[in-house]
Amino acid sequence: MTLKVRIIPCLDVAGGRVVKGVNFVDLVDAGDPVEAAIAYDAAGADELTFLDITASSEGRDATFDMISRTAERCFMPLTVGGGVRTVADIRKLLLAGADKVSINTTAVNNPDFVAEAADKFGNQCIVVAIDAKQAVSEDGPDRWEIFTHGGRNATGIDAVEFARLVVEKGAGEILLTSMDRDGTKAGYNLPLTRAIADAVSVPVIASGGVGTLDHLVEGVKEGHASAVLAASIFHFGTHTIAEAKSHMLEAGIPVRIKI
C-alpha cells in the first residue's frame, strides 16, 4: 500500500483555549485544547494543527504550556503556528512538543527566514502557511493574492509564485488557506488548491471552507491536496473523524483506517 491521505483537525487557540473564527473574526469558544487533542487522538486524527492567534506574551506562555501538556498525552504529530518570528521561537515550540512549525507573516516579510529555519531544523519541520484570496481581475486567468496578519493585510504577492519561492527556500509543506472560503462551509477553493499543489514538489494541506464530507474528497481529487484540514465540522460534532475517513475511502482515497 502507499502513503495515506491525512485528515487534520485544526484547533485555533488563544491564551491556551480553543476558539474558531468565521472568516477569522467572531470567535466562539470551542473548548479546552488538551481535552480536544486527546479526543482527536483517540478518534484517529492523522495529525493535529494548533494555530495560536494570541496577541500577548502572557497568552503565548499559556500556549507553550498547552503544547507541552498535549505532547505528554498524545502520541501523534503536532504542528504549531502563529507568531513564529525567530529561530528561537521555533526551538521553543519544538522543545515544548511540536513536531512541525508553521510560519506565515514572517515568511512573507522575509522568505530567507524559511531557508534559515529549514537549514537549522530540516525542511520536514518547516510548514509555510499561505493565506490567499482571489484577486479581482476583469477577464484574465484566476489569480490569488497573499494576505498576512490573520488575513487582515493584503500584500499584492501572487500566491502561486510565493509558494514556489518558499519551497525553493526549504519549506517542507504548504498549509494553504483560502481566505474567501474560511468559515463559510462552501468547500475548499479548488482552483487555488490545485494551482498551488501542482506548482510545488512538497505536500499541500488544503484548508478553509469545509462544510461537508464531500468537500474533503474534492480537496484531494480536484484540489490535488496531500492532506485535508478542517475545524468546525469536527469541533462541533457535525462529523466524526471516522465518518470522514470512511467517506473518503468509499470515494477511493487511501486513508488510515486501522489506528
Binding site: 502507499t2 502513503l3 491525512r6 492523522d46 517542507g172 514538489s201 505536500p203 496531500s226 488510515r256
Partner: peptide, 9 residues
C-alpha cells in the same frame, strides 16, 4: 508523489 514523504504508511 511529493517529497518529503509526510504521513502514515
Amino acid at each position: 508523489l511529493k517529497i518529503p514523504q509526510i504521513g502514515w504508511n
